Amino acid sequence: MMSTSERFVVITGGPGAGKSTLIEALGRHGFACVPEAGRAIIRDQTAIGGRALHQADSLLFAEIILAWEMRSYRHAAGQTGTVFFDRGIPDVVGYHLLLGRPVPPHVSAAARLFRYHPRVFVAPPWQQIYAHDRERTQDFAEAVRTHDAMVDAYTRHGYELITLPRDGVDSRVAFVRAQSPGVGDGSVR
């Protein structure tokens, strides 16, 4: 039987690289999926006039994301089979790196305590599909810096990174299924 952390597969990277589209497609294939915290927090904070936003109070934004991700992890533990996460707790480490700030000890502790499968999928920056929307206001250069910070964060925490191909969503689904535990034609080794 697979442990909880071995069932939890993260897809990370910078904004606008196709992570959420891939997660949604995996969900349509019947897999349990955990959506990205950041977008929901931005929508909620904007709706209520809150300050927990990247542009207003980035540290408060990071704290709310951390709390959301820990709750999502615990909630997913009650599900069976592989669970795909649109970002994970080490992304909060990466966010602090992106900001050029020291990573708070409690954030590092959370990244050590809440573990995912040792192999993490990374969506590389992809300018051809990058687009702004209501929640994604970063320019492409910041998207690249975010990608690099996430790679650094997951590497620091001992994860092996698997770069997703810059290809259509169906190809990405097939790639992830072939590389994921208990899914499709292959398994993560």
Rank of each mutant, 00 (worst) to 15 (best):
G182V: 05
T137V: 13
I48R: 15
I89Y: 02
F8I: 01
R39L: 08
D148E: 15
I42P: 07
V122E: 03
T46Y: 02
V176M: 02
G81D: 11
S108T: 13
V188E: 12
A123R: 03
L66A: 04
F175V: 02
F114M: 06
P118N: 14
R189N: 14
F114T: 04
T155G: 08
H54F: 11
G94Y: 06
A123N: 07
D152N: 11
R166I: 08
H132F: 15
A110N: 10
L22F: 03
I64G: 02
A17I: 02
L59F: 09
T82A: 15
I23K: 00
A149T: 01
H132I: 06
E6S: 14
D86I: 00
V9G: 01
R43K: 13
F85R: 01
T46N: 11
Q138H: 08
I41S: 02
T12S: 09
M1L: 13
V103L: 12
G49T: 03
V10Q: 02
T4M: 09
C33V: 12
R28S: 09
H75A: 15
W68T: 13
R115E: 11
Q179S: 14
D44M: 10
V188F: 13
I23L: 00
S108D: 15
P118S: 14
I41Q: 01
G100F: 04
P15Q: 08
I64Y: 06
F114W: 14
R172L: 01
G81F: 05
T12L: 03
A143C: 07
R156E: 12
L59N: 12
T21C: 05
V83C: 09
H106W: 12
G38W: 00
A40L: 04
P15T: 06
Q179M: 15
A77F: 07
P105E: 08
F31A: 07
V176C: 06
A149W: 00
P35L: 07
R177N: 08
Y73A: 02
W126C: 12
L53Y: 04
A17R: 04
R172E: 03
A25G: 12
V144W: 00
R145L: 09
R145T: 01
I41Y: 01
G50R: 09
G27L: 05
G81P: 10
E63D: 15
L164E: 01
E36Q: 12
A47T: 02
A178F: 04
P35K: 00
R134Q: 12
A153E: 09
H106Y: 14
A143R: 05
P105I: 01
W68C: 11
L97R: 10
G50E: 06
H29N: 11
D152E: 15
C33E: 01
H157L: 10
A143E: 04
Q128H: 12
G88V: 03
R7K: 10
R136T: 09
V173Q: 05
V9C: 03
V183F: 04
D133T: 12
A141F: 07
G184D: 00
D148C: 08
V144C: 11
V151M: 07
Q127C: 14
F121D: 05
R39M: 06
C33L: 05
